[in-house]
Write a protein that binds this DNA or RNA. Structure first.
Length: 314
RNA sequence: GGUCGAGUAGCUCAGUCGGCAGAGCACACGCCUGAAAAGCGUGGGGUCACCGGAUCGACGCCGGUCUCGACCA
């Protein structure tokens, strides 16, 4: 017996990405189930929280028993968790998968988290006490004052953001003042797209069809007991990030008595639709992504393409 | 049948004394480096219910018609 000649280039990792409700999990599952050495890595900012299963459309236990899944259920809903935590966990998972001679399939809905992996982003540290000062200064002096300061310390970073975007201005100042080097020195930013050893496929739906799928899926989540799931979370502390998850935020409002269930459901659907559009906009400017147009069944449309890529990218 | 109120952007509604038609949401487009299912910016969109009248000029005033709502019979 002889093996195929090893490629000169390094093997590429497959990425399946797309907006919420695009069917990327089903496609990934179909691909991975056909290969014993495949493991799925979730690239999702909300599926990392334990106990948030229905609303985040986390893969079923049956699927997870059949194919190993990584980067799910990393922390409790009350824990702080952010980009760098995800990047660490995902890099570790990829190394482990590689170590046992397996291959990863990334399933990505959170664009920034994906970029941290594919583009090996250097994520600056955090300086909480400095951050608190800056937040207070925003209140006292206004965002523009902080933006002017940033413009002196790091003109490149300041030029890249609106002067009234408090979140970005404060973060850039935090990093520049706290770290002793300009925010912009941590990398080229996300608007450059160098070649990377990942083959990325995006699932693209006609927007009205996706909107209908979102509405149907929200109702299916409710039938599956989403309200009870949120209720059970409401007893324990929920982190700032976890509590803003779509479906959870609105149902927490409903449970607190500030709106009717019908209004909460309407809001969930609208905001999920808007989120899906934002995901599309994030992904579609990345020229490295190859798009698969889907009309009805995502698995039928995408699996042959992915199977071919799986075979040739090894 | 009568009285009163309402009719303005896809939706909910502002619009002062008659002088270029407004907001919020929705929608479209763009941005994004430790909250990213978050945050920020830009934009398109109107037969002011309809018909007529007075006026240099009407969403606004006058007359009529239609629709919806409340009340009275």
């Amino acid at each position: 017996a002889h093996r195929r000649a090893r490629r000169v280039t390094t093997a590429s990792t497959l990425v399946i990405l797309g907006p919420t409700a695009s069917g990327k999990s089903d496609v990934a599952m179909a691909l991975a189930a056909a290969h014993d050495d495949a493991e799925i890595v979730a690239v999702d900012a909300m599926q990392v929280y334990r106990g948030m299963d229905i609303g985040t459309a986390k893969p079923s236990h049956a699927d997870r028993a059949r194919v190993p899944h990584r980067c799910l259920d990393l922390v409790d809903a009350g824990d702080e968790f952010a980009l760098a935590d995800y990047a660490d966990a995902a890099r570790r998972a990829l190394a482990e998968i590689d170590g046992r001679g397996h291959r990863a399939v990334l399933v990505a809905g959170t664009g920034l988290y994906l970029r941290s992996i594919t583009d090996r982003m250097e994520v600056p540290g955090r300086w909480p006490e400095l951050r608190a000062e800056l937040d207070a200064r925003v209140e006292a002096e206004g965002v523009e004052a902080l933006h002017r300061q940033l413009a002196e310390l790091d003109p490149i970073a300041a030029g890249k953001m609106e002067s009234n975007n408090a979140r970005r201005v404060v973060r850039a100042l935090e990093v520049t003042l706290g770290g002793g080097r300009p925010f912009s020195s941590y990398g080229p930013g996300i608007d450059t797209y160098p070649p990377v050893p990942f083959i990325q496929f995006g699932l693209q739906w006609p927007r009205p069809v996706l909107a209908m799928r979102i509405s149907e899926r929200v109702h299916r989540m409710l039938d599956a007991g989403l309200v009870a799931e949120v209720e059970s979370l409401a007893g324990a502390p929920i982190s700032r990030t976890a509590r803003q998850a779509l479906g959870y935020k609105e149902l927490l409002d409903f449970l607190a008595g500030s709106c009717t269930l019908e209004a909460a459901i309407e809001t969930i659907i609208t905001r999920t639709r808007q989120f899906a559009v934002r995901q599309e906009r994030w992904f579609r400017r990345d020229p490295r992504i190859r798009w698969i147009t889907i009309e009805d069944d995502p698995v039928t449309a995408a699996l042959p393409v992915l199977e071919r890529a799986w075979q040739t990218s090894n």
